[in-house]
Design a protein around this nucleic acid. Sequence first.
DNA 1: CGCATTTGACCCGCGC
DNA 2: GCGCGGGTCAAATGCG
Length: 307
Amino acid sequence: MGDKEKADPGAEFASDSSWTLGADSDSVYFFSNDRDSSILSEFGWNFHPDEVNRTSEREQFGDLDGIGGDERSSSDLAGSLGLPESSSSGLVSSFPTAAPVGSTSNNPSVSSSSSEDPPEKSADSGGKPPPAEIPNKVRKKGQKRIRQPRFAFVTKSEVDHLEDGYRWRKYGQKAVKNSPFPRSYYRCTNSKCMVKKRVERSSEDPTTVITTYEGQHCHHTVGFPRGGVISHDAAFAGQLNNPVVSQFYYPTIQLPRESPPLTTMTHSRRAPREAEETTRILQEPTSDQLPDEGLLGDIVPPGMRSV
DNA sequence: CGCATTTGACCCGCGC
DNA sequence: GCGCGGGTCAAATGCG
């Protein structure tokens, strides 16, 4: 696959993504050292910034302005997010710095908008687990849709559905304007988890997959139907091994110099055809190969954190 | 049989 | 107010 890097991933994302990145400026995250952990925890992952080696993606994505001033902090996020599922195809991870979600700016990067903090998990308010936002039918008129922080990742991958350690259920697909590729909507299969993610392929660069996460996991990674349980670390490591370049807008996490193999796993019962074709056999990585032991695996329930 | 995916319809927010 | 586009729902369908 092309290893070429995206010249301007952000721009692409901005144009393709309908998620008004930064549209709601008030909800945009401005990464700062202090906020690193907060942001990460926002997704249910605990990150220890200090342990993460930061690379100089900045150079690479210099045009992506960092969020508010200190982009470095964003690096952790990527790892926490469980990363775009590229594990099957692999990616060279280069986590770009987080971009400000200023829709007005050229910063394409990711958008994270946390307009209103994640609603209390009203987990079971009825039968189905409520989505991140109040269901239309339940939502009262005038009640604004609540959006959770969103983080987008640009990944060079041939497969759309990448593994990230969590199980996802597809609940919708939409055609993307000005793009031949549809956008898929996924929800975490955990009934109590309201995390959602959107996966779409860049129209400009078909080899680029844009994954946007919204919400925070309130549980650990799950086991896979086949392949056993996988940890975030494993998933993360595996992705790093991939030959694809993944650009994570938010985090600027540092990748291990070497990507340890990771056992490929598939969440969905039906493995994507592409995945089967491009999947590489990976092996579970050792802790020292990972960016940081426990860095990715340390997950904390959303409710535990204080933002 | 249970769970995931597909897909058309519906709802909502936003721009004009 | 209207239209467009994004996002979600839910019934139908398929697969293991």
